[in-house]
């Protein structure tokens, strides 16, 4: 890990955004419901993703941050697929704010994943 401070900051930023996103989904924020309705995943998918985001955020703040960042990268890839194939880049007239946040989280998690890749269980030794 070459930049411990930067890595820890990235973990914190990603975890914060994820916690917010997770809570929004749990409490049934109208924007979230609309998104998951248009993906035909309402409400099961919404809760599923909320749980995954919550777990990932907690992992990011724990010694298993490497695993958490992998999970986050996965979720964010899924979100990008959703926006590119079905939702469009501007959702609910937010001027692309949601997608922007998504990219920030992806970059943070990606950085954490790369700098902590050796700590990944099972495959870490080979990376």
């Amino acid at each position: 890990m070459r930049h411990p401070k930067l890595t820890r900051t990235a973990q914190g930023v990603a975890a914060m955004f994820l916690l917010i996103a997770s809570v929004q989904k749990f409490i049934g924020d109208p924007g979230s419901i609309e998104i998951f309705s248009s993906l035909e995943m309402e409400p099961t998918g919404r809760y599923l993703i909320a749980v995954i985001e919550l777990v990932a955020a907690l992992l990011l703040l724990s010694p298993l941050a490497a695993l958490g960042s992998l999970l986050v990268v996965g979720v964010m890839c899924g979100a990008i697929i959703a926006h590119v194939t079905q939702l469009g880049l501007v959702v609910n007239d937010d001027g692309g704010g949601l997608v922007g946040m998504l990219v920030v989280v992806l970059l943070c998690a990606g950085y954490v994943l790369i700098s902590r890749r050796k700590e990944l269980p099972l495959v870490g030794d080979t990376l």
Binding site: L39, E40, V73, G74, V75, C77, I81, A82
Partner: peptide, 21 residues
């Protein structure tokens, strides 16, 4: 799984992402 996610159900994208990684 990407195609299935687009045509059948978005849930297939869980597989898409896993295979992508």
């Amino acid at each position: 799984s990407g195609v299935a996610g687009y045509l059948v159900s978005f849930y297939f994208h869980f597989l898409t992402v896993t295979f992508f990684l």
